[in-house]
Design a protein around this nucleic acid. Structure first.
Lengths: 188, 188
DNA sequence: TCCGTTCTTGAATAATCGTTCCATAATTTC
DNA sequence: GAAATTATGGAACGATTATTCAAGAACGGA
């Protein structure tokens, strides 16, 4: 048995993520994908099946990375409220790059079960992680005790989406930072 | 001169709005558009030029209607804060239908000057209308005096987008109502 | 060095895309 | 009713789509 160098699947997926994020599913052609992924057409179809499966793989990989980054930020800082703030600041800082999660949700809504399952699971894990941190912050006296942690978590996720929509629309970073501050204001 | 019945341009545009809202620009074919618009292919190109111009016309018409509806709601109620609440409640109630404004922004970002001009003007007029109402509410003591009306206005617009993304993702109306309540909470 | 495996590349397929041409049907004015 | 004008719908256009076939290039193990 002999095998030449196999290409890096994850690196190829990152290229696909870039293309899909910027142009959506329908707006991304196979040629754009092949170019950005740095692999041949044949390899693409051999490794991922077809364009839709590649899209789902890209959304899953992007979402897992993004989810991990959110949770990492959440855990930072001496107090829970600092972690929540760090999570929002990271979103503000990266809001110049389009979010494949928001993009996939708004392009397909709930019409594609594959996609809904991927995004549903990711959103759920993020929701519980944020809610747990909210409870910590309530214990530390930094978030109003009367707030429902689950509802507050969903509010923060909605504001992350709102910040990203604003950023995609060209809002300046200072304006996005104000959005983050206002969202934090609702917590106390 | 003689002329047969001319088709209703606005009604045709409404059909185009439905298609573009649900499938985006790239996901909407000329055939889907003529079916939904109830006119012939030839009439479409005669009346609107090409697909892109039709898209811009649809985004403009949708945005103007949506902007007017927001401002109408803003003006309702005995106090300014009631109008603000009514605006958000209307968003929650209509969040099952995808928003062409959010969709166009997230599909194209700032890459299309035509689109950016349309959405920029609409966003600006909405922003000043909301900011004015915020100032009223501050005078009436229902919104914290320390808040910057412009920043608060942008926050509300971002939350409208966030609610719509959540709705597009399949969130229940009760969950969307909680998002609206949390956004209102940031105002006081 | 040769074999076997994998990647790449270009051509080919069939379908669909946006768009235009053209003939026909429908409707109003004369 | 005739003429004029507009909308319609099918056929056709070239371009591009996603996908596959087929052949060549690059590499690892023997």
């Amino acid at each position: 048995m002999a095998r030449p160098r196999e290409f890096d699947t994850d690196a190829a997926l990152d290229g696909a993520i870039n293309v899909f994020s910027g142009h959506g599913y329908e707006g991304s052609s196979a040629q754009m994908l092949v170019d950005a992924m740095g692999i041949g057409r044949q390899s693409l179809y051999a490794a991922f099946g077809d364009k839709w499966q590649l899209y789902c793989a890209a959304v899953r990989r992007y979402g897992m990375g993004e989810c991990a980054a959110h949770i990492d930020a959440l855990r930072s800082g001496p107090r829970a409220i600092d972690g929540i703030g760090a999570m929002l600041r990271r979103v503000v800082k990266t809001a110049d790059r389009p979010c494949l999660g928001v993009g996939s949700i708004y392009e397909f809504g709930v019409s594609e079960p594959d996609l809904q399952e991927i995004n549903g699971l990711l959103a759920k894990s993020l929701r519980v992680a944020i809610a747990a941190r909210i409870r910590d912050a309530q214990r530390e006296g930094d978030v109003a005790a009367g707030l429902d942690p689950e509802a507050t978590s969903e509010f923060l996720i909605a504001n992350i989406a709102g910040i990203r929509v604003a950023g995609r629309g060209g809002a300046a970073r200072a304006a996005l930072a104000r959005l983050s501050d206002m969202a934090m204001r609702a917590l106390r």
